[in-house]
Structures are given as structure tokens and as C-alpha cells.
Design a binder for these strands. Structure first.
Lengths: 366, 366
DNA sequence: GTCACAATTGTTTGCGCTAACATTTCAGGG
DNA sequence: CCCTGAAATGTTAGCGCAAACAATTGTGAC
């Protein structure tokens, strides 16, 4: 079609020649600059489609010194939450016209974090989103002090950096409050690893809800997110657990716990109620189907990008801004019921409501 | 430290000035060109560390017309296999000095694939790895005919393009052969969606093993990878299934099946043996722990990168090359046992071994 | 018609690097 | 000592684009 067409992809100058304008006008059309006449714009657009021209992003990056790519730093992609968060990030970033480059960390060491940051820095990313932020990771990040904006998909709402957060604590309280409403008074917890913000937040939520209801904390067992650790916790709980209900910090550990309880054997929920966290798709098919807390991780990812974009524009404005946290929800299934062995006590308490159960929602029977 | 240092990051010319050489010599040092004197190299290296110089990858890309980034096209990151594969890809690519850009597909439509390819093409990726290749996706890919090398992490060993494969069929046969060795003669299958290569391969492996053992295929139910579809299949199977064993195309569906069986109630493995596929970490904590097929997805990812790298160098050589497929393994746990209801028949058959059970491994009692 | 001013277009420059070519340096044979 | 060729280094010219500046056109008031 066009004049001097070699076999190389067309560049801006080719378009300019075909459209009968200067290459700068072509640039202006592409970048939606205001001062371009309708006629010129039309000609340029025609030439672009005729030649199948595509702007060379790399050249643009060199000229503008902006790479249009954001880096995502993650460690545990095979976990449900992070994987979903990444999905949300990718989608939002691509919609915003950015490229998404990823780096995964096998282990969180200073060296590995530094290496990954190096990688991103080489690439000239314009921002970094940290999914799965260990405190260790954030600390390493602070020490390295990357020159680009860093946003963390975190639950540490006290952190001074920019980020998007899901209110993990509120989710945990939801779970525990549900158990309290059912009449449980001995509510234990299987936590995630204590070097994860999420795990700490969920544990604190458990504690808070208990304190509000003037209930003593039940048995606390430390897990590591893995089903195996939930299983081990279940075995440790033994045949006569010191609790009538367990709030478990993620669904995988809850799965392990369920298996251990079956093996004791203990009936669920009659002998022990269980609430998980995350609501991964499989949770509905555990045996019995797991009552759990649902989090919108994709939304979290989206918010990370939103926060990042904003930080690019507000350029040094107050960087402590947090997006509205994502709201967790309780998903009721079949692993919770009123406590059996304490039924008597429960009924007795209900008729003249125990004074310590102050919030009305908590003392009601449903 | 250095002379005229503004606040901008140092560039090659700065290094050259400090080292007392030309910028081209600096370039040669960085790129490990042979003809550089030891002295010059040393000076340049000293200057680089002194200034904290980092090569601008974007400028390099513009000059060399190579972006050093590879695109990963994926759809279902929350599935175990794809997530793990991505992990392997990322690691291998980064080790090979490449950047990894991702694009995720919500739905497999021609438009969405075209859009993602556009995205990569804009970015100037040097290769694309397709994780989770639907036939539909590959077809769209073929029609668009991207100008870059495409490698697929696929199990379609007949496909004409380059790729790395895991021998899904062999895994399926492993599963079925195990059941046959236990004495099962009525072995059913719950498949994945038929527009996934993996699902088709596994189904065919099931059929092959059965045929080899001269056994008729048991009930075949079509699922969609989700636990829910496995559950539905379990309900469809009913209280008196027409099989004594089921080979399930992934662990999630097996989980759903397990729940359905518990609810019938049917005992596992006494009433029905179950074998899954993938060996995701949770499988060991299903109730009962799931016998399944383990695949090394990370290795698959690594091989994709290896295949891609090779295709870059062999440049148009025979592109049908396939890397050695990843070997699947049978992981024995607690969901398989000898068939109970057919025990009599089984024993009878064993004493004078049925002529149709030809391969010795299949007719033996273990 | 002329002038002032805005709207529109074109030209030049350089982003930071590498490839290609040009030049200098060095070693060894005659 | 000069000549030859290789090794080492320097110089120039883009890669394709956008920013800054320069030039041109058009518009309306007078």
C-alpha cells in the first residue's frame, strides 16, 4: 500500500510521510495533544491504520524516562490470597495502560529482596506493589529505600507507607462474634506464622472480640498456614479439647484441623465448631463445608494499583493515605453450631442475659 | 566523589569520564567484549562501583532492538498447576537475565487473546509463554500469528509448535494401573473440561490403561475442575455406584467427590477408591488423605523458558523440538484399597490369571 | 489593509545505549 | 629500523520517540 515500505515495522516517520505531516504531528495525535486540527488528526489516523503502525513503547520510554511498567513483588503465589491479589493487580494495571512485571521470592532474605529490587530497578519500573508483605520484607525494603513508589497489599494499617489494606482484624472479629453468638465461651485460635501481618491481625481480632465479650481466650496454637500445621494443631488439641470452637487463621489449616478431628474422632460441629479464613473456593467442599470469612483479594489488588496511580500524581503529597479497606464477610456453612457440652450453661445464661455480654448483637440468640 | 555530579543517575559517559576511557569502552566492559585490556577493564569497573552506575536497560533495548522481556499469558492463576508453573517460569527467566511480564485472561475469546497479545507486542516482548493453553487460545494465537516465539506449557504433544510438556497421559495411566493392580475392574473417571488439553490427555490415559488391561471403561462424568463439579459427579454416582474406583482429573474435584461420598454415606476407600491428580499440598489433608498423581509444575515452567531460549538461538531450526517431558509420580495415600464388593470375583480371577490381563505388572497382586 | 495574538505545524535536539567504522597502539618478522 | 597485522581504543551515527523551541498559519480588532 504505502510508498517506500521495507520489511521493517513502520515508524512514526513513515506515518508522517503517508499522512503528509511532520512526525511530531503524528506524535501529537497519538498522545492526544490539544492543538491538532481535525483534518490533520484524521489524515494521521488514516495513515496509522493503513500502515498498521504501532508506537514503539521502548523508544517512548527512553524519551520520556517513564517505563509504564510496575513491578509486583510476591513470595507465595501458590497461596490463594496472593494469587488472587495478583490477578486484581494485573487487571487494574493493564487497564491503566501499564505493564506488569513480576518477581517472586523463594525466601525472604535481605539479599533476595535486594536482588529482586535490583531487577525492577534495572527495568526502570515506575512503582512496586508488594504482595504478601512480611515485616521482614518491608524492613528490607526500607533499608534499601528504592527510588520508586512502593505500595503494599498489607494489613498492617499502622505502617507508614502507602498501601491498600483489607481489614483482617474485622474479619477475625466477625468470625469470633459469630461463635460467641452461638453461645461458645471457650474459643481457641490456630494462628498463621507470626511474621506475617495478616496472621498477627487475625490473632488480634480474635483477642479483641473475646475481650469485648469479657471472655477468656481459649487455647492458642501457632501454625504456618499449611494444612499440615492445622492437622498438627488438631492432634495437639486432643480428644477433649479445652475449647468448644476454634477460629482458624486460614482455610488450609482448617482443612488439616478437620482431618485431625475426624481421626480423633470428634464430630463437627457438634463436638467442636470451626471457622476458617479466606473462603477459598474449595472451602465449600470440605467435609463438612467450612464456615469461613470471605475476603475480596482481587479488589485489594485493584486498590493497590489505585493507590500507586494516585501516588504518582499527587507526587509527594501526604503519602500515608489508605484506600478504604476491603470489607470481609462471614460465610455461614456447616462447621459451626451451638456448643453441645455447654448447652446447659448456655441456656441458663440466656434467660437472664449475662451482664458481661454487653453488645446486644452478641447476646441475642442468632 | 566524582566530578560533575548532578542529581541524575550516572550514565555511561560519566563512567567513561571517571575511568578515563571512552564510553564505548565502558560498553564493552559491561557486555564482556573480548578486546578490552585488563587495565581498562579494571578502571571501568572501579568507576562503575564508585558512581553506582547501572546500565539503562531501556536505552539498551532501543539500541539493540531487544527487550529482554518475555510475556506470560495465563488465565487461571488461582489454579494450583498454573500458579506453580508461573513460579518456575519466573525463576528460570530471571536467572536467564530476562524480565517477566504477565497478562491474565478472564475469558478465552478471540478479542481478549488479541488484546493481550497486543499488550505484549507493544511492550516488545521477545517471546511468549502460554500457560494453561486451551485449544481455543492456541487457535486464536495461530490466527493472530504473533511475530515472536511462542512456547506453550501444554500437554498436547501433537501440537506443531514449540513447547514443554508434562506427560499427563502417563500420569493418568499410572493412576489407573494402580487401581487395576488393586483388583478394580470397574474404574470410572471424572474429567476436566474437554476444551483443556490436560483434561483430554488425562481422559485418554484413563482409557488407554483400561484398554491395555482389556477392561471396559467405567462411568465417565464430565467436570470443570471445580470442587463443585466433583461434588455433583459424586451425587450423580449415587449410593450404589457402577464403579468400585474413580480416577478424578484433579484434586479439587476429588475433594468434592469425597464430600459427596461422605454424605451418601459411602466409605472411602472400602466402598469406593479415589485417585486424584496434581497432588496439591492440601491433598494429604483431605479426609481421607488423597492418593493422587504428582506433577512437577515448576520444572515444567523452567522447561518452557529453556525451550524459548533455545528457539531464540537456533533461530528457525526445527521448531518441533520438545524438551523431555516431566515425569508424573503416583503418591499413595489413603483413598485406595482393594475392591470389597468384588472381592470374590477378584480372587477367583487371580488364581488362574485372566488371559486378558496381559502386562505382568497389571496382573500381579501389588 | 494591518497588526497582535492565538492556534497549529515543523525543526532540532537528545534520551542512553550499541553497532559500525576509524584510528591508534603494540608485538614480532624481516 | 620499518612493515604488517592484530589488539585495543575512539568516533560517529543511529535506535524511535517526545520536549523544547521556531516557524507558519489563521483570526479578529482596528
Amino acid at each position: 500500500m504505502a510508498g517506500t515500505e521495507f520489511n521493517r515495522p513502520p515508524v512514526m516517520k513513515d506515518v508522517a510521510r503517508v499522512a503528509g505531516v511532520s512526525h511530531q504531528t503524528v506524535s501529537r495525535v497519538i498522545n492526544d495533544h490539544p492543538n491538532v486540527s481535525a483534518k490533520a488528526r484524521q489524515q494521521v489516523e488514516a495513515a496509522i491504520t493503513e500502515l498498521g503502525y504501532r508506537r514503539n513503547v521502548i523508544a517512548r520510554s527512553l524519551a520520556t524516562r517513564r517505563s509504564q511498567t510496575i513491578g509486583v513483588l510476591t513470595s507465595d503465589l501458590s497461596q490463594f490470597g496472593p494469587a488472587r491479589t495478583l490477578l486484581g493487580i494485573e487487571r487494574a494495571a493493564r487497564e491503566a495502560g501499564h505493564f506488569v512485571s513480576i518477581a517472586t521470592l523463594r525466601e525472604i532474605t535481605f539479599a533476595s529482596v535486594a536482588h529482586a529490587l535490583d531487577h525492577f530497578w534495572n527495568q526502570g519500573v515506575e512503582g512496586i506493589v508488594v504482595v504478601v508483605p512480611h515485616p521482614g520484607l518491608l524492613e528490607a525494603l526500607d533499608r534499601i529505600a528504592p527510588r520508586v513508589a512502593v505500595v503494599a497489599a498489607t494489613s498492617d494499617t499502622r505502617r507508614s507507607s502507602l498501601g491498600a489494606a483489607v481489614d483482617q482484624r474485622a474479619g477475625a472479629r466477625l468470625a469470633v462474634q459469630h461463635l460467641i453468638e452461638l453461645g461458645h465461651t471457650r474459643i481457641g485460635h490456630i494462628s498463621g506464622p507470626m511474621d506475617w501481618f495478616d496472621a498477627v491481625e487475625r490473632l488480634e481480632g480474635w483477642l479483641e472480640a473475646l475481650t469485648e465479650a469479657s471472655l477468656p481466650p481459649g487455647p492458642l496454637l501457632y501454625g504456618d498456614w499449611s494444612a499440615n500445621s492445622g492437622y498438627a494443631a488438631g492432634l495437639a488439641l486432643g480428644r477433649e479439647p479445652a475449647a468448644t470452637a476454634m477460629f482458624v487463621s486460614n482455610d488450609q489449616m482448617a482443612l488439616g484441623l478437620l482431618r485431625a478431628l475426624h481421626e480423633q474422632p470428634l464430630r463437627i460441629p457438634q463436638d467442636l465448631s470451626v471457622v476458617g479464613y479466606d473462603d477459598q473456593p474449595e472451602a465449600a467442599y470440605f467435609y463438612p463445608p467450612l464456615t469461613t470469612i470471605r475476603l475480596d483479594f482481587e479488589e485489594l489488588g485493584r486498590q493497590c494499583i489505585a493507590a500507586l496511580m494516585e501516588s504518582q500524581h499527587l507526587e509527594g503529597a501526604d503519602s500515608k493515605r489508605f484506600v478504604e479497606p476491603v470489607e470481609p464477610r462471614l460465610i455461614l456453612r456447616a462447621t459451626t453450631a451451638q456448643p453441645r457440652r455447654e448447652e446447659g450453661r448456655w441456656r441458663r445464661r440466656l434467660s437472664p442475659p449475662g451482664p458481661q455480654l454487653q453488645p446486644p448483637a452478641l447476646s441475642a440468640n442468632r
